[in-house]
Computed example of a mutant assay.
Amino acid sequence: MKKIIAAISFIKRINIFFKYLKDKNVNIVSKIKAFSLFSVGILYLVSPIDFIPDFIFGLGIIDDIFVLTYIFEMLNKQLEDYKRTLKEKSLRIIEIDDYIIKDEN
C-alpha cells in the first residue's frame, strides 16, 4: 500500500517536480539526480529488458513496481525537502526583543 501511495504522491507533485528542475536556486547536481531518477524510471518501465521478464505473468510486473516505487520514494523525498525550503524562504521571521513579526510574503 505504501508503494502505491508513493506513486500517487509523486504524480500529484509532478508540477512541483518541473518547478524544481527550473528553479535557479536548486544546485545543478540535485537537478541532475532528480531528472536521472525520473528518466531511469520511465526507461525501465518501457524497456523490454527487466530483472524479471514481463512475459512471466504476474512476476514480470512485480519488479517494475518495486523499481518504480523506489524511484518515486527518492523523488518524493527530494520534492518534500524542496517544498520545505520554499516554505521557509517565504516565511521570514524578524525578532525584536519580545516581539515577533512574521512576514508571509
Score class of each variant (00 low, 15 high):
1 M>C: 07
2 K>H: 08
2 K>W: 02
5 I>S: 13
6 A>W: 00
7 A>H: 09
9 S>T: 12
9 S>W: 00
10 F>I: 05
11 I>P: 02
12 K>Y: 12
12 K>L: 15
13 R>P: 07
14 I>D: 12
16 I>L: 14
16 I>V: 15
16 I>K: 03
16 I>Y: 06
16 I>F: 09
17 F>E: 14
18 F>M: 09
20 Y>S: 09
21 L>A: 02
22 K>G: 04
24 K>M: 09
24 K>L: 11
27 N>Y: 05
28 I>S: 06
28 I>K: 09
29 V>N: 08
29 V>I: 08
30 S>T: 01
30 S>H: 08
31 K>D: 05
31 K>P: 07
31 K>H: 03
32 I>W: 04
33 K>G: 00
34 A>W: 01
36 S>N: 04
37 L>F: 11
37 L>T: 01
37 L>S: 03
37 L>A: 00
39 S>K: 02
40 V>L: 15
40 V>D: 03
40 V>Q: 03
41 G>D: 05
42 I>Q: 11
43 L>R: 04
44 Y>W: 06
44 Y>M: 11
46 V>A: 14
47 S>D: 08
47 S>K: 06
48 P>H: 05
48 P>N: 06
48 P>V: 11
49 I>K: 07
49 I>G: 02
50 D>L: 11
53 P>M: 12
54 D>F: 08
54 D>T: 10
55 F>C: 06
56 I>N: 01
56 I>Y: 15
56 I>C: 06
57 F>N: 05
58 G>Y: 10
59 L>I: 07
64 D>S: 04
66 F>A: 04
66 F>I: 05
66 F>K: 01
69 T>C: 12
69 T>M: 04
70 Y>E: 06
70 Y>K: 04
70 Y>I: 05
71 I>L: 12
71 I>D: 11
73 E>N: 13
74 M>N: 10
74 M>P: 00
74 M>G: 00
74 M>W: 02
75 L>A: 06
75 L>P: 10
75 L>N: 08
76 N>Y: 01
77 K>C: 03
80 E>P: 00
81 D>A: 08
82 Y>G: 12
83 K>E: 15
84 R>L: 14
85 T>Y: 09
85 T>V: 03
86 L>N: 15
86 L>D: 09
87 K>G: 01
88 E>N: 12
89 K>Q: 15
90 S>M: 11
90 S>T: 08
91 L>I: 15
92 R>G: 06
92 R>A: 10
93 I>T: 14
95 E>R: 13
95 E>K: 14
96 I>K: 14
96 I>H: 13
96 I>P: 06
97 D>I: 04
97 D>Y: 05
97 D>L: 07
98 D>M: 03
98 D>P: 01
98 D>H: 12
99 Y>N: 13
100 I>D: 03
101 I>Q: 10
101 I>G: 05
101 I>E: 12
102 K>Y: 13
103 D>G: 02
105 N>T: 14
105 N>K: 14
105 N>I: 09
